[in-house]
Design a protein around this nucleic acid. Structure first.
Lengths: 221, 221
DNA sequence: CTGCTATGTCTACGACTGTAGACATGCTTG
DNA sequence: CAAGCATGTCTACAGTCGTAGACATAGCAG
């Protein structure tokens, strides 16, 4: 990509602070997605932007602050959530089940999270980013009570599937029929989107859940 | 803990190869669960076992081989799967939703996976461990066709929830009513346990969102 | 054209990592 | 008791990490 731009090998690049900063940030996002917080070094990030390692710290202060900005930018765009919540399950399920990953860039933040979560500092930054951008907006478009935890459960489901498929690489999920996987995931997410768990204040009130409420007879714990 | 045992400070420990090996392996499992593959150093593991770093490599060859053995042992025990598959959803949901983590040690392998997945070598070792122990056994006790991918989806759901709750630490899931969370998770997992996705040949058959209508249908094993 | 400041690079440091060989020690067998 | 081998430790070495200060250069103002 960026073949036509003046990126490499044709001169040391014109001096432009904001453009350099942008290049470093983009390289950092790509590196953190691919290698995680601990795996991506400052030299790697700098090399991807065509600059020296020291410039990274000069622009962002430290690797941790760079990561914070990368997370903030990476989670800011639509990221799973679109303006249209009606087909959220179908759309997300399709992207999660897609065999090839051509344009699943809106799931890249999940890769960034999955590969950086081991570091406690990074985990805290990610938690803040999710709360700031995704969790809140996702909870807003979810109907019914207790939207926030259901939104996080939705994120958990997406993260788990993406972990198995893209990070761990379990074979059965990759070999599963794509349409069947899409349906399965869509049903799961629909259950989270539509279900209305009993409000925390009242008692369990079993049977209130819409579709799969009285699956097994066993009442609350 | 282990106050009564001759673990520390009362002599340099009796020389016993298998016991030392066991101590190193246990310390490694604990360290890998807590810090992940990249985060746990050999010196940390050795210190936890009361030995020197070199002894670790002397017994296990390398850190990677030590990790492989730790994964193999950590995933070997019941690990989520019990001998009784009937209450799998209820039991797992309860453990996932438990506010305090007293005895959720059977979910520790998921922590190990989540915190080590960033490293490609570690991810491959984990994938092999899951395939060898959990995936196969879990697929065996799942009724209906396409059990293997549904088993992995089950693992993905567990991993995702555990990631959000224990690694990232999103607040809404922690604050959610425990009983409600248990029910929500149980319904999700029941959908995966009982659902019979149309065989790859059939079409999508849209509109069958609430496919978990005849939930309790799972008769035999 | 000349000088100044923003922009970028170079060298380097201390800390940490996984790993290797040489050395010391203790248990066990003769 | 004494020898021998298994068991464990010490020192060390490349390598990488994030970060810091000193130095070089490009681009613009006068």
């Amino acid at each position: 990509m960026t073949a036509g731009t003046d990126k490499s090998a044709d001169g040391p690049r014109r001096r432009d602070a904001s453009a350099t900063r942008e290049a470093i940030l983009n390289s950092a996002i790509e590196a953190f997605i691919r290698l995680g917080y601990d795996g991506a070094g400052v030299r790697e990030v700098a090399g991807g932007a065509g600059v020296t390692a020291m410039l990274v710290n000069r622009y962002f202060g430290s690797k941790e602050q760079l990561f914070a900005e990368a997370v903030d930018r990476s989670f800011a765009p639509p990221t799973v959530i679109n303006d249209d919540p009606s087909d959220l399950s179908e759309r997300t399920a399709t992207r999660l089940a897609a065999r090839t990953s051509p344009d699943a860039d809106d799931l890249d933040p999940f890769l960034l999270m999955l590969r950086s979560a081991a570091n406690p500092r990074a985990a805290e930054i990610i938690r803040a980013g999710i709360e700031k951008h995704v969790g809140r907006r996702l909870a807003d478009i979810l109907p019914g009570p207790a939207a926030a935890p259901r939104a996080e459960l939705l994120l958990a489901l997406i993260a788990g599937v993406w972990l198995m498929r893209k990070v761990i690489g379990t074979p059965a999920l990759a070999g599963m029929d794509q349409a069947a996987l899409t349906r399965e995931l869509r049903d799961l997410m629909q259950l989270l989107v539509n279900a209305q768990p009993a409000t925390s204040g009242g008692d369990a009130a079993p049977g209130a859940i819409s579709s799969s409420s009285k699956c097994t007879g066993f009442a609350s714990n």
